Simulated assay, not measured.
Amino acid sequence: MRGAVEAYWTAAEARDWSAFGATLAEGVVYDLPQTRERILGKERYLRFNQEYPGDWHVRVERIVADAEGRQAAARTGFTVTGSQLGSPPQEMDAIHFFTFDEEGLITGVTDFWPESYEPPAGREHLVERY
């Protein structure tokens, strides 16, 4: 599963949405506890990432996977510019938890960011709030 998480982040950083989508199960569930948002399904999750405002770059700092191959976690650092965060560029750390199906596709992603925040406008068509 380590390789699947590496492929996920490599594709995300490259904005290679075809390769990114190839890491995801059709029914993937993406959770953002800080904003109380949930995205259901591969197509919506792809659009969420494609439409994300501003410019960001990710550095994968650590990936840990369980021996059974059904769960993994990653610690990343992000540099974000030109979004709702404003200028100058901001550095953020995040922790991500992944679950996988029998084929090694990602079925769930939960992202934890440093602080709670209200989500930016413009993604209501993709998310549910809880």
Rank of each mutant, 00 (worst) to 15 (best):
R36L: 10
R36I: 04
E37I: 03
E37S: 13
I39Q: 03
L40R: 10
L40W: 13
L40G: 00
L40K: 09
G41D: 04
G41E: 05
G41R: 03
K42Q: 08
E43K: 06
R44D: 10
R44L: 01
R44I: 01
Y45E: 08
Y45A: 05
L46S: 05
L46E: 07
L46W: 05
R47W: 00
R47H: 12
R47Q: 15
F48W: 15
F48T: 01
N49V: 03
N49G: 07
Q50W: 01
Q50F: 02
E51Q: 13
E51P: 02
E51M: 04
Y52G: 03
P53M: 13
P53V: 06
G54N: 07
G54D: 05
G54W: 00
G54V: 11
D55H: 07
D55P: 00
D55V: 11
W56T: 10
W56P: 01
W56Y: 15
H57D: 14
H57I: 09
V58N: 10
V58Q: 09
V58L: 10
R59H: 09
V60T: 14
R62D: 15
I63H: 03
V64D: 09
V64P: 01
A65D: 08
A65G: 08
D66A: 07
E68R: 06
G69L: 10
R70W: 07
R70Q: 11
Q71G: 12
A72E: 04
A72T: 09
A72H: 05
A73S: 13
A73C: 12
A73Y: 13
A73H: 07
A73M: 14
R75L: 07
T76Y: 02
T76C: 09
G77Q: 13
G77F: 05
F78R: 12
F78T: 10
F78D: 13
T79F: 03
T79W: 00
V80K: 00
V80S: 04
V80F: 06
V80P: 03
T81Y: 01
T81Q: 06
T81I: 06
T81H: 07
G82Y: 00
G82V: 05
S83F: 00
Q84D: 13
Q84S: 14
L85C: 06
S87G: 07
S87V: 01
P88W: 07
P88I: 03
P89N: 06
P89R: 01
P89S: 11
Q90M: 04
Q90T: 14
Q90N: 04
Q90A: 15
Q90H: 13
E91V: 06
E91M: 06
M92K: 14
M92T: 02
M92D: 02
M92S: 04
D93M: 06
A94W: 08
I95D: 02
I95H: 14
I95S: 10
F97S: 14
F97P: 04
D101K: 03
D101M: 09
E103F: 01
E103V: 04
G104S: 04
G104V: 08
L105E: 08
L105V: 02
L105A: 13
L105C: 10
I106C: 09
T107S: 15
T107A: 11
T107P: 10
T107R: 11
G108E: 15
G108W: 10
G108D: 14
V109M: 14
T110E: 15
T110H: 08
D111L: 15
F112Y: 15
F112I: 11
F112N: 05
F112R: 12
F112H: 14
F112V: 02
W113K: 07
E115Q: 15
E115V: 14
S116Y: 08
